[in-house]
């Protein structure tokens, strides 16, 4: 979308003495407010939520290492703050910004809805995803090089996420 209007258009259309309010759409509801935990550490986290965010952070780190990217390189390529990547990878109680999850999903070509659930940005969950997150987190360790087993675990987990990318 490229808006190409002359300066004269704005001069005529926006009058100095105009006095209008704007706004469209029903204002936010309480559910949205309740879900607004992103960008913060969540102290009150269930074991299941902890396992999911741990699995999310581990998955992002594995994907990054598999592509031989530094945290800074990933942050630049995915257009996410370096500090956000560090928190995602190393703080399992950190609930990331939805946009960061979206950016990372796009960059790594991962299913977005499943990743939003896994990162606890959305409050919709299912037991299959939680079980898979448990298994993936339990069988992974964050070390320098991806072992063959870690790569297999990562590939299987990504394939599973692809089956969970629904509403």
């Amino acid at each position: 979308m490229k808006l190409q209007l002359s300066k004269e258009w704005f001069e005529n259309r926006i009058q100095p003495d105009e006095d209008f309010e704007v706004g469209a759409g029903v204002p936010t509801d309480t559910q949205e407010c309740a879900n607004d935990t992103s960008g913060n550490e969540q102290e009150q986290m269930t074991d299941e939520e902890f396992a999911e965010t741990l699995a999310f952070g581990t998955l992002i780190q594995f994907m990054r290492r598999d592509r031989r990217l530094s945290v800074e390189q990933l942050a630049s390529a995915a257009r996410v703050d370096v500090a956000e990547i560090v928190k995602i990878e190393f703080d399992p109680k950190y609930v990331p910004h939805p946009r960061s999850v979206h950016q990372l999903a796009t960059f790594f070509e991962l299913p977005q809805r499943a990743l939003l659930k896994l990162s606890n940005v959305t409050m919709v969950h299912n037991n299959q995803l939680r079980d898979a997150a448990y298994r993936f987190a339990a069988n992974s360790s964050k070390i320098a090089e991806l072992s063959h087993e870690e790569r297999v675990a990562m590939t299987e987990f990504v394939e599973f996420l692809g089956t969970q990318d629904d509403d």
């Binding site: 979308m1 759409g25 029903v26 939805p98 979206h102 959305t122």
Partner: peptide
């Protein structure tokens, strides 16, 4: 009194859907 919106939540909800655009 003046309504407001949780834009971060809306962005996460709508951005995966191709029929929505953002400005």
């Amino acid at each position: 009194q003046h309504g407001h919106w949780n834009w971060e939540w809306k962005w996460s909800h709508f951005s995966p859907q191709l029929s929505y655009q953002f400005v």
